[in-house]
Design a protein around this nucleic acid. Sequence first.
RNA 1: UCCUUCUUAGCUCAGUUGGUUAGAGCACAUGACUGUUAAUCAUGGGGUCCCUGGUUCGAGCCCAGGAGAGGGAGCCA
Length: 491
Amino acid sequence: MPLLRPFPFKMPESFMQIKEILGLTPTQQSIVVKGWVRTKRVSSSVAFIAINDGSTIHNIQAVVSEGTVSEETLKLVTTGSCIAVTGKLIASQGQGQSVEVEVVSIEVYGTADPEKYPLQPKKHSLEFLREIAHLRPRTNTFSAILRIRHALAYAIHTYFNNNGFFYLHTPIITGSDAEGAGEMFRVTTLDPINPPLTEEGKVDYKEDFFGKETNLTVSGQLEGELGAMALSKVYTFGPTFRAENSNTTRHLAEFWMIEPEVAFYELADNMNLAEDFTKFCIKYALDNCADDIAFLEKRLIEEEKNKKKEEQSEMTLSEKLRFVTENEFERLTYTEAIDILLNSKAHKNGKFVYPVEWGIDLQSEHERYLVEKHFKKPVILTNYPKDIKAFYMKLDEDGKTVRAMDVLFPGIGEIIGGSQREDDYAKLLQRTKEVGIEEESIWWYLETRQFGSAPHAGFGLGFERLVLFVTGMSNIRDVIPFPRTPKTAEF
RNA sequence: UCCUUCUUAGCUCAGUUGGUUAGAGCACAUGACUGUUAAUCAUGGGGUCCCUGGUUCGAGCCCAGGAGAGGGAGCCA
């Protein structure tokens, strides 16, 4: 990413980041480098210090000639310590970097006892790094992931802004559990030992902070729809919470979700939006995070060497990303997908653990077969049976299926779930009753269908699943700085 | 929540049918080396074998219970 400064303001050299310094032409200009020491190599007359400040995957090399820095100071410069180096920017005599800093002086901001500092210059397992999440951003792998995560967040806002969407801030504390998207986290200020009770002996939430039961949101969609009924094109991008006891590489208790909602969009428009949007974001990362993606790609190739041949992927990370941006997503209905599965060799040979028939909720093995074996690219499945989908999805003419769509990605599974929403008041009311949602709890949602109702559609994208795909990582706990999962809320 | 695998040095792991003083690589420390690229070479220090209980003359290894972690599944984004 090029650094864009809005006004003609020259950064003082003492505040330049390493990314910027590495791009300068060396003219022996004086320079200050501030960052954390990655490695130090000492020989009798010269020492080399590799410094990183997180602005780029690349380190800058500081060269200390004999006699310039006291031995006591140099001794404090260890892996993990934080230093400020003052010196001259010169062309490097060695291979591997074009510029380096000829050191005049070093100030040690913070030492790091090498006997105790856990991140020593060697390979560490991702499991170990998860235990030291407060330090793992200092590794190449995690700094690369965090920079890509940032770039994707920026790309998301850019895409929507460029396409006439407004960023709508939906509430994080919610009084409705209407969507039924999952178990919720209770929000309360009541005394858990001695709560106020009703006459029937139940907890009296009228006494609670909000005067009713409240939870952390599982989705901003319903409020997003309210916004779309006024601003036409809106999106949310915020934290979302699920109290499900899921222990998988694809689920978090706290994650970030993007939910566009658009008035006058029907299912086909929604699919176009989902495809165009994901392609834009991935392309943005490819164009702007080339160094970080190249680093992660190299890391993956190393990792795959230890795998069996059949488990190794056919494409490198960047090939996989380019493949997605350059090919059409395959679009088919649920019913067509069931036919493909029924006619598959896997089904005929009894390879599927779960049986296939019209009406089932597709299992991971079925989705994987469609995406990874049959089509070998992202797939959009539409028009699912109404019984396995949410109450707010628009009923098809046949009365059996709804205008739902799931976007399935290789390796990740469902990355997007969306639908055209039911805009007919009577039908929506009917569905809420069928599913057992109390009318009073979402009166405000139902009312939008009575006052100027309009066809509209939207979807939800799990941000971490997108980051997972772009970084090529395999565990969702490694693409969020501080993961929240069952039994884990450290840091 | 279910299935399954694992837990031995700071990290990654080996440890034979139960048998003396538990090993390796990396990391770290010290020394050597005139420019290194996670430098190289030499030497050295470093252990609650996850916890509790049991079997046994004897347990890192066998048994029971517990805790934590990984992978898969379900639920989903």
